[in-house]
Each structure stands twice: as C-alpha cells, then as structure tokens.
C-alpha cells in the first residue's frame, strides 16, 4: 500500500461537465434518424425566432393591402395582385404580411412554451420528490391534490382559469403550471418510489445525508432519462395548449402575432382565403412534430442501452 502521491490529472467537475451531463442524451440523438428530423425541425424554428427581425420583411402589425394571395398560389377569390409589394405568403384580412407574422409568432411560442414547461417542471419535480421520498401523509395530501386537478378535462380547466382571471401571458403560464404540474408530479413520484429503494440511497441514508441531498443529488439525477423524454413530449402539449387557447380566443391578447390567435382571427374566412389560416397551422404542426420526434428518438436511445 505504498501510495505514490496522486499524479492523476483530475479536472474539477465544473459547469461544463454538468451541462454536458444534462444535455448528454440530446447529443446522442444523432444515432436516431427520427430524432434527427425532430431536432432539425425544432432547430429551424428556434433559428427563425432568434433572427426574426432579420428574416421578417415587414412589420408584423403594419397594415398593407388586404387579402393578397401568395404569388405562387393564386386562387379565384383573391384580388388580382397588381401591387408591387412581394408577400411571400400573402396578406390577411387586415393587410398584414402573413409571413412576417409567422416569423414573429415563432418568437412568442418559443418563449412561452419552454417557459411554462420549465415552471411546470420545477413545481412538479419538487412535489414529486417530496411525495415519493417522504411518502405517508405528505404523499397523501399531494396526491389527492393532483387527483383533484387531474379529474378535470384539461381544456375545461384552462378555459375556467383563463375565462375567470382573464387572458394574459402570465395567466397562461400560471394556468399551464397549475394544470400540468400534477401530471409531472405523478411521473416524478413514480420514479422516486422506485429509485428510493436502490441500495445507493440506503447507503446515503446510512451515512446520515440530509433529505434534500438524497432527493436532489442521489435520486433526481437518475430520473433524468425518462424526465427528458417526457419534457420533450410535454413541450409539444404545451405548444398545442397555447395554440388551442389562441384558437379559442383565450390566448395572448391581440394584436401580437400568435399562431393560435392568427388561426382564430382568420378561420371564419378560411374556406375562401385558406392561405391566411393554413400557414400558421403548418407552422405549429411542424414545431410540435419536431418536439414529438425528438422525444421518440430519445426514448428509442434510452431503451437501447
């Protein structure tokens, strides 16, 4: 046991390592073709959102010539396009450029959907960790509360909350946290109930580690696989929710460009002027598809090893 002093270079596990650990599974996606398609779609919309001011040719709120068809898709109802302005996807009933609104709308949805998901996860993880680790009455109270919320059909809950408290960005985020937090809690709780029986948790308990340490350091990191998959799926759901709320007129207040809202404003004219409604629908569907494919790719990889 003559120990020569340590000559190993041991890098301190800093922020970089932690980050790599957290997003590690996403990096693995390149092994799944389906996941690659998903991440490409999401990346596309993220880039569009970031560079919106550079991409959008017009002010999304400025009114120009109304009811213009896309130059490449003339249909009978549209006024003939005698104006020089080029509207890639046409203009809506108020003469706003659909393409510019779409580009700026990407910003809205890509800010609020991840923000709401993140908040919901924070709440859900804390609740789930406590319920699963402490069990007993803590679990009982939290689980009954979750049961109560989850017994509402999701959309009914949203409509009740937003109709009662009014439509605003903050209220939408709060409503999403309120409605999806319990679902996340159930998943986390299930994982924790399983992980807490592991011997490394018993080992941590037998050396007297505090409860918060065991929950955050010993248990939570090992639950990250299923949680990342679920988070991707849930990002999709939240995007749908924001879209549906916009569609029902309960979304982000106009005139801000919001995909759901754009569909809502123009749907009554969709049969005559489909270009005003179809493009936001395509946009939101591709983004959701991106999240779902990403989730599927991640799940495939996590099942593989």
């Amino acid at each position: 046991m003559a120990a020569p002093s340590a000559d190993l270079a041991l890098p301190a596990p800093g922020f970089g390592a932690a980050l790599r650990k957290a997003i590690g599974p996403i990096g693995l996606l390149r092994e799944s073709p389906v996941g690659m398609v998903g991440i490409t779609l999401v990346a596309f919309w993220v880039l569009v959102a970031i560079f919106a001011p550079l991409i959008a040719p017009y002010d999304p709120l400025a009114t120009q010539d109304p009811f213009r068809c896309p130059p490449w898709w003339q249909h009978s109802y549209c006024p003939t396009n005698e104006v020089d302005n080029f509207y890639l996807l046409g203009t809506d009933h108020l003469g706003r450029d659909v393409f510019s609104r779409l580009v700026w709308g990407a910003r809205k949805v890509l800010i609020y959907a991840p923000l709401a998901t993140l908040c919901a996860y924070t709440v859900g993880i804390v609740m789930g960790l406590c319920a699963g680790y402490y069990r007993g009455w803590t679990d009982n109270i939290l689980s009954r509360f979750a049961d109560l919320i989850l017994s509402f059909p999701v959309l009914v809950l949203y409509i009740l909350i937003i109709a009662h408290f009014g439509a605003s960005a903050v209220n939408i985020v709060v409503a999403i946290v309120f409605a999806s937090g319990p679902g996340i809690m159930r998943i986390v709780r299930g994982l924790v109930l399983d992980l807490r029986t592991r011997e490394y948790v018993a080992a941590a308990e037998t050396r007297g580690e505090p409860a918060w340490w065991i929950m955050l350091v010993e248990i939570l990191p090992n639950a990250r696989g299923p949680l990342i998959v679920d988070a991707c799926l849930r990002l999709g759901y939240v995007t749908i929710t924001i879209g549906v709320l916009g569609f029902l007129g309960l979304g982000l207040p106009p005139p801000d460009p919001d995909w759901g809202g754009m569909i809502n404003e123009t749907r009554s004219m969709a049969i005559s002027f489909p270009h005003m409604t179809v493009f936001p629908c395509i946009a939101i569907s591709t983004l959701i598809l991106g999240f779902n494919l990403m989730a599927d790719g991640l799940r495939e990889i996590s099942l593989r090893d």
């Binding site: 490394y200 080992a203 990191p221 090992n222």
Partner: peptide, 25 residues
C-alpha cells in the same frame, strides 16, 4: 446518530448493480 456512530457502523450492500449511484464518478 452522531457522525462518530455513523462512521463506526457501516454496511456493504448486496446488489453490485445497485450499490453505487450511476450518476456520479
């Protein structure tokens, strides 16, 4: 239990695949 007691009373667990936390070095 105090730290003194805890360190003088330790355990080796049964399942090698479960005894170490897979998330840490």
């Amino acid at each position: 239990r105090g730290p003194q007691r805890i360190r003088s009373l330790q355990m080796v667990f049964q399942n090698p695949f479960d005894t170490l936390n897979p998330s840490h070095t």
